[in-house]
């Protein structure tokens, strides 16, 4: 009897799924909110940086190089995201908390050189790339009996 039950149950489940909410978000038209520990593009707060060079020494991929800021002698990190593996050692070792992580992972470009972020570029707020359409911000929610799905939380 259990064999019959085990045979019929998946079929009923599959049929019921047809009427349930679709789980997938239509990325990049919809951008699901990322978990809080998501490791995205690293951001530099220049005014906090004490030019100690710890990030350069700790970087396992030699992606960080200390360079002079434009128009001053202050040394600040320059990150090559082509080499970076997002281990976030630099963020956790930074004594002044000048390097912080952000949620933006859409940093793809057409040439490797554009992935080298000098301190000035590193200091910019992370922003959604112009190549992609403006996304709907969505969030994963369980909506009643129709299952979990992505719900819009207002346009960016």
């Amino acid at each position: 009897m259990s064999t019959v039950k085990n045979t019929i149950r998946p079929l009923v489940l599959a049929f019921s799924h047809v009427f349930r909410r679709v789980f997938t978000a239509k990325y990049p038209y919809e951008a699901p909110s990322r978990p809080s520990r998501c490791r995205g593009r690293i951001m530099l707060r220049i005014e906090r940086c004490i030019s100690c060079g710890t990030c350069e020494k700790i970087c396992p991929n030699i992606a960080i190089k200390m360079v002079k800021l434009k128009g001053s002698d202050k040394l600040c990190p320059q990150i090559d995201f082509g080499r970076c593996m997002f281990c976030y050692f630099c963020v956790s070792y930074c004594p002044a908390e000048a390097l912080i992580g952000t949620e933006l992972v859409e940093i793809s470009v057409y040439s490797k050189e554009k992935l080298i972020y000098p301190p000035e570029k590193l200091a910019e707020e992370p922003k959604w790339p112009d190549l992609l359409p403006k996304p709907k911000r969505v969030k994963l929610r369980v909506v009643g009996r129709r299952g979990a799905g992505h719900v819009e939380i207002g346009r960016e």
Partner: peptide, 13 residues
């Protein structure tokens, strides 16, 4: 399309 709905996906879009 239908298989995608069974798996809670969109399918061809």
């Amino acid at each position: 399309k239908l298989l995608a709905r069974v798996m809670l996906r969109y399918g061809p879009l």
